[in-house]
Amino acid sequence: MQEKSQRKQNKIIELATFYIGDALCGIDILNIQEINRHLEVTWIPQAPEYVLGVLNLRGRIVTVIDLGKKLGLSPISPGKDNRNIIVDSRDEHIGFLVDRISDVMIAETEKIEPAPSNIGGVQGKYFKGVFKTENSLIGVLDINAALKDE
């Protein structure tokens, strides 16, 4: 019983990590529907600046967001490593365009520290916390905060 509660506290999560510029970020892999390089994005005039456009994901219209812009970092620079991370948020598929994908990290929730109010110029409100590995810091993204429509 005790063990159980402990495990509950110290859950192991898998983080899919990716780069926005030089910043390494991670999303709980359970939030991710798929990662693709579907780049036929239809641009939407008048859309918020961070919205790159929409794409057709097997019949669904998916809004693609430049995660760099959305988080207040540098915009994603186009390149062949660009990927769309399709996440599911409030019954809607949304694509995050990121610079490139990195590894899947296994993290213990216990070891995720609260995000400093200002990490690398990014507003802390978008992050659940920071996960330290031996040689890097991963900002764990709170997708619901990041996708909160303003």
Binding site: T42, I44, P45, Q46, A47, P48, V51, V54, N56, G59, R60, I61, V62, T63, I65, R90, E92, I94, L147, D149
Partner: peptide, 19 residues
């Protein structure tokens, strides 16, 4: 007709999207 995502609700020029 397919609906647009919530981030695009602010654009009043569109009624939706189609493929």
């Amino acid at each position: 007709v397919k609906p647009l995502g919530r981030h695009l609700k602010g654009c009043c020029g569109y009624a939706g999207a189609t493929i």
